[in-house]
Write a protein that binds this DNA or RNA. Structure first.
Lengths: 122, 122
DNA sequence: TGGATGTATTCGGATATGCGAATAAGCAAA
DNA sequence: TTTGCTTATTCGCATATCCGAATACATCCA
């Protein structure tokens, strides 16, 4: 039950968390989960300039989230592990839960004693 | 198997991913998983100035990752859901896996055709 | 080799984020 | 109300990140 060391959390943050620290990179991960793609295909799918895609892929590769393999002139990118998608899906579930909670709190408009995110309801 | 919409991924990123986008915030989440704490207790546990802790808590609260409840002069912070810890633990596992993989690749020093993160081995 | 295609990198500027220090604000007890 | 304890906010600065545009690099084929 101990708190993980700051060292490990630093590694966790700089290797994994920053990888999902950009919406476009999350999109890339989902696109690669669907199936492997080369750079220009990703650029077209995500309607994003090729250099931007390439930069994001480089970052994801450095963090071992994706793997690259050259095939002729193309470089095919593949998801390193589907586990990262499981993580992202779990986050989406947390997001849905929290949005539901917020909606309910608004609907009830009760006299809760909790300090919510937006306003301080005492 | 469709790629989630950019809208949803934008929400996912700005609500959840940015919450874990700082090592200190990850520390806070683990500390609160251990048990609820007030601000000054967190400041002491994490050896961090109180304003810094307070700022991070405000951000986590806005994203519904933690809940706050005033008790006298103190404000007790609680983890909104242990699910976020499951997500972080899953990320730590991914990190360990990828570090293991890197270690093995270094050990073998084989003639893999993959393009690794650091160098481009063709 | 030269040209075409596909990918990676660099540069500059704009934006965002984090921190320390100082201060404000909220609450309880005398 | 005044004092003391706890938490929140503001300010200024340093740092990091992102993007578009241009360009360099890599590969294949004629």
């Amino acid at each position: 039950m101990a708190i993980p060391s700051l060292d490990e959390l630093g590694l966790l943050h700089s290797n994994i968390c920053t990888a999902v620290g950009d919406p476009k990179r999350i999109q890339i991960l989902y696109a690669l989960y669907d199936q492997p793609h080369n750079v220009s295909a990703l650029a077209e799918i995500l309607a994003t300039p090729q250099p931007t895609i390439s930069r994001h892929l480089t970052l994801l590769r450095e963090r071992s989230m994706v793997m690259a393999k050259r095939e002729g002139q193309s470089v095919i990118y593949t998801l390193a592990t589907p586990k990262i998608i499981e993580v992202l899906d779990a986050m989406r579930q947390i997001l849905r839960d929290s949005l539901d909670r917020k909606a309910n709190m608004l609907a009830n408009e009760d006299s809760s004693e909790a300090i919510t995110g937006e306003t301080i309801t005492v």
